[in-house]
Design a protein around this nucleic acid. Structure first.
Lengths: 210, 210, 210, 210
DNA sequence: AATGAATGAGGCTTCATTCAT
DNA sequence: CATGAATGAAGCCTCATTCAT
C-alpha cells in the first residue's frame, strides 16, 4: 500500500526484485532467504526493496501473485494448442524451460508449504489452482479426444487427476539431482504426460507413442 | 549420532521430542519453528533437546527418518490388504488419521522443500520414495486386478502415476482449510483413490462405484 | 577480511570498537567479555560490531594486530632515544601511560594465554616478539654503552634477557592492586629498568643511581 | 565449605579432579573449560565434582592453591641444592618436567590473567610469589657465590630480577610450538638460567660453562 | 530515487548447577 | 557415594526493518 507509483519504471524495479527473489527463494527457500540475499542478487541496496515492497511478506505475496500470472499465461498457451495432448504437454513442462515462464519446482513446493500457514498465500494458491482447473476442465469438455466418456469420469474429475499428477511430478522434481538439465527434465515430464494422456483419453486402442 | 544412550528411556525422550517437533513443524514449518517452540510443545526445557539431538538439523533429519519408518509401516499394511484397491486406499489415506501414522501433509510438503536444499534430507526422501515405489510396483505385479496390461503400461509405470497422484493430493491437502476434519479429508482421498483405481485397473466395464 | 569498506569512517568505527574491546578485555578477559559488553562500552548496538568484524575471534585477532602496531611504534620511539638506557625506559614503561599506546598489562597476559591455544594469535604474538627482539638487538649492537662485551653475552642474548624481564614485570603488574596509579607503576618499572641496565651494561664501576 | 570430610579418600578424589582440571585448563584455559570437560577427563560424573568443590570457581582456587604448594616444593628442592646455580636451575626448569611438579606454562599464564580479575586468586598468587621471592632472597643472601655485592644490588633486588626473568620465560614458553618436547624446553631454560647466573653472580671471570 | 549504516529482537546453542535415583 | 538427566540463563550471531544522507 505504500507503493505510490505504478508507472513503468516502478514495475521494472518490482520485476527486477522479484526476479532476484525467485532465484533466492528457489535456492534457499522463503525463510532462509534474507532481504540482503535478494538485494545482492538484484544488485541493489536493501533499502530499495522497501521502497517497492512493504516487507518481506509482501515480496512473498507478490511472488505468489506472479506465479498466478505465469500460470495464467501457461494456461492461455495451453488453450491455444491444437490438440488436448499438446495442451497437456505445455502444462506439464512449463517449469522445465530454462527461463521465461519461471515456474520453478522448488519455489512452487515452498509456495504450497507457505500456503499451509499463511492464509493470504493460501488464498492466492487456491485461486491459481481453481482458475487452472477450470481452464483445463473447459479444455477437456471441448476436446474431441475426450468426447467418449472416459469410464464415466466427468471433465472436472479428469482435470483433478491431471493436476494431481502435475503437482506430484513437481514434488518429485525437487528430488532430482541439480545436475539434471532442463532438457532432461522436460523429457521426463513429456513421457509421463503422454502416459497419462493415453490412459485418460485413448482407452480403445494402440499405444500412444512408440 | 553423538547420543551415547539408546535405552528405552532415551528412545522415549527422543520420541517425545519428535512428537512435539512434528506438531510444530506441521504448524509453522521447519525453519519457522524455534527450538523453544519444540521444547514448549514437549513440555521440557530447551537444553534437554540438545542431550538427545546434536542440533536442529539433527531433529529435522530424525523426523525425516521417522517419516521413512512410518511410510514403511503403511506400505506393510498396504501389502497385507486383500485387494489392490484396498491397498491403494491405505496408501492414500495414511496421513488422514487423526494420529497414529502421523504423516501430516504440511510436514511432508515441507520435507520435500527441505530436500530440495538439504542433500541429507534429499537422500532420505528419495530412499523413502524408491522403497515405496518398489513395494507398490510389486503389489501391482502380483495383483490379479492388474493382470490385463493396462494400455501397455508396466507395473512400474502405473506405480509412478499412482505416487504422482498421491503426492499431488497431499499438496492440495495443505490448501484445505484447517477446519476440515480428518474424516472429511479421508473421504476426499478415498474418492480420488477409487476414481484413479477404476481408471487404471478397470477399464472395460461398468462404473466402479455407485 | 569480509569488510568491504576501508574508508576513513569504517576505520574510525573499527577503532572505536577496538577501543571498547580493549577496555573490556583488560577488565574481564577475552572470553569473559561478551559482545554485548563491547557494544555497550562502545555505545553502539551489538549488531553493528558484526558489520566491522566477522565474529568475536576476529575482534581478538584485530586487537592482537593493533598490539603489534603499537609495539612497533614503541620500538620506533625507543630507537630514536639518545641513549640505550632511555630506549629501555621507553620499552619498559610503554604500558604505564594512562592511554596513548594502550598496551595494558592484563590484556597482554590474556593475549599470551590466548596465544597458547589459538594458532592465529600465537603467530601474531610471535611475530611481534621477534620484531621487537630484532629491533632491540640492533639497538644494543649499535650502542656505545654495550660496546664492551658484557661477559661474552651477544647482543641477541642480552635482548632475550631484557625481554624476559620486561614480560616478567608485566605479569607481576597484573597482581598489583588496581588502585595503583599509572605514575606509580611507571616509577616501579623505571627502577627495575635502571637496575637491569646497570647490571647489563655498566659492570665496571660505581652504583648506577644514588 | 560444603565439603564435609577431608579424609584420605576425599583428598584422593580432589586430587583426581584437580589433575583432570589442570589438563583441561592448560589445554583450553579456565573459562573455556566446562565442568563436563573436567569430569570427562577425570572419568567421573559432573555431579561428583560438586561433592568435592562448591563450584567452578572453587576448582580454580584450589588449582591456585595447589600451584602454591607445588611452588613451595620446588622452592624446598631448590633450597637443598648444593650451589646457587643449581638452585636456579631447579627453579627455572620446574615446569619442564613431563609430569610430577605440574607447573605448566599455559596454566600459570592463565592463572595470572585470572588473578588480574579475581581478587581471591590474586591474593593467592601474590602470596606464592612473595614466599618464593623470600626464599630465593634468603638463598642468595646465604650463598657464597653472591657474596661480593653485585654492583650494589641487594639480594632482594636480585631475586626480583630472577623472578622477572623466570616469569618472562614462562610467557615466552606458551608461544613455542606444541611439538617441542619437555627435554627441549628444559635445555632452553637451562641455557638462559646459566646466562643469567653468570651475569648476576660471576662478573669477574671466565665463562661459566663450555 | 537510492544507499547502507544502524538497531535490537530473537534464534541457536552451551554450560554451570541441581536433584531424583 | 555416585550418576547424569534436567533446567534456564546467557552468549554469539543473524536479519527484518528504519532512516539520515
Amino acid at each position: 500500500m505504500s507503493q505510490p507509483q505504478m508507472d513503468a519504471t516502478s514495475l521494472d524495479r518490482r520485476s527486477q526484485i522479484l526476479d532476484a527473489a525467485l532465484v533466492c527463494f528457489a535456492k534457499r527457500g522463503f525463510h532462509q532467504t534474507s532481504m540482503h540475499d535478494i538485494s545482492a542478487e538484484a544488485g541493489i541496496s536493501v533499502g530499495l526493496i522497501y521502497r517497492y515492497f512493504e516487507n518481506k511478506e509482501a515480496v512473498i505475496s507478490a511472488m505468489a501473485n506472479r506465479h498466478k500470472k505465469e500460470i495464467s499465461e501457461v494456461l492461455e498457451r495451453a488453450r491455444r494448442a491444437p490438440t488436448l495432448l499438446e495442451s497437456l504437454e505445455i502444462l506439464f513442462t512449463a517449469h522445465c524451460c530454462e527461463n521465461e515462464p519461471r515456474v520453478i519446482s522448488a519455489f512452487v513446493v515452498d509456495l504450497y508449504a507457505e500456503a499451509s500457514r499463511n492464509p493470504r498465500v493460501a488464498d492466492l494458491v487456491r485461486d491459481v489452482l481453481q482458475t487452472a482447473m477450470d481452464g483445463v476442465t473447459d479444455l477437456i469438455a471441448r476436446s474431441p479426444e475426450a468426447e467418449s466418456a472416459t469410464y464415466g469420469l466427468k471433465p472436472y474429475e479428469l482435470a483433478e487427476l491431471i493436476f494431481a499428477v502435475s503437482r506430484g511430478m513437481l514434488m518429485r522434481d525437487v528430488l532430482q539431482p541439480q545436475e539434471m538439465t532442463a532438457a532432461e527434465r522436460r523429457a521426463r515430464q513429456l513421457e509421463v504426460t503422454r502416459r497419462l494422456w493415453s490412459l485418460l483419453f485413448k482407452q480403445e486402442s494402440e499405444p500412444a507413442y512408440a
